[in-house]
């Protein structure tokens, strides 16, 4: 299965970026093989508004089943939900560390957004 982890760096040892919409990178990880692919989110970092929505779309296009992040606002959550992607919030650690936790079944899916939208 493939998941996306929001990341502050370009490899598995980087720390998870707690932001979803304005995360530096999205790392698409195959949870079995630990193969990964890096997607930049630079365009979104500077977007005047709707970063959560755009980030949700970017993630939806990767065809993953779940997103592992720190905080996810209501609009991004809505987009991910529409795309049938599960969201796991409130986690921290390295990209590798959180995928291992995910594999061990230690993380549970969020029922809703865990932060308010940033409005912009």
């Amino acid at each position: 299965m493939k998941v996306v982890v929001t990341s502050s760096g370009k490899d598995l040892d980087a720390d998870l970026d707690p932001r979803f919409g304005r995360a530096k990178y999205f790392i698409v990880v195959d949870t079995k093989s630990m193969d990964f692919e890096v997607k930049e989110n630079t365009q979104n970092l500077n977007l005047p508004q709707g970063a959560g929505i755009q980030a949700g779309k970017t993630v939806a296009e990767t065809g993953v089943e779940a997103v592992l992040t720190g905080n996810c606002g209501p609009k991004a959550f809505q987009v991910l939900e529409t795309a049938g992607i599960h969201v796991i919030t409130g986690i921290q650690g390295t990209v590798k560390g959180v995928v291992e936790k995910f594999n061990a079944g230690e993380l549970s899916y969020a029922g809703g957004p865990n932060v308010e939208g940033h409005w912009v």
Partner: peptide, 10 residues
């Protein structure tokens, strides 16, 4: 309004 919402969110 808008800037206040941005200042208090989260």
């Amino acid at each position: 309004g808008c800037p206040v919402i941005a200042a208090v969110t989260n």
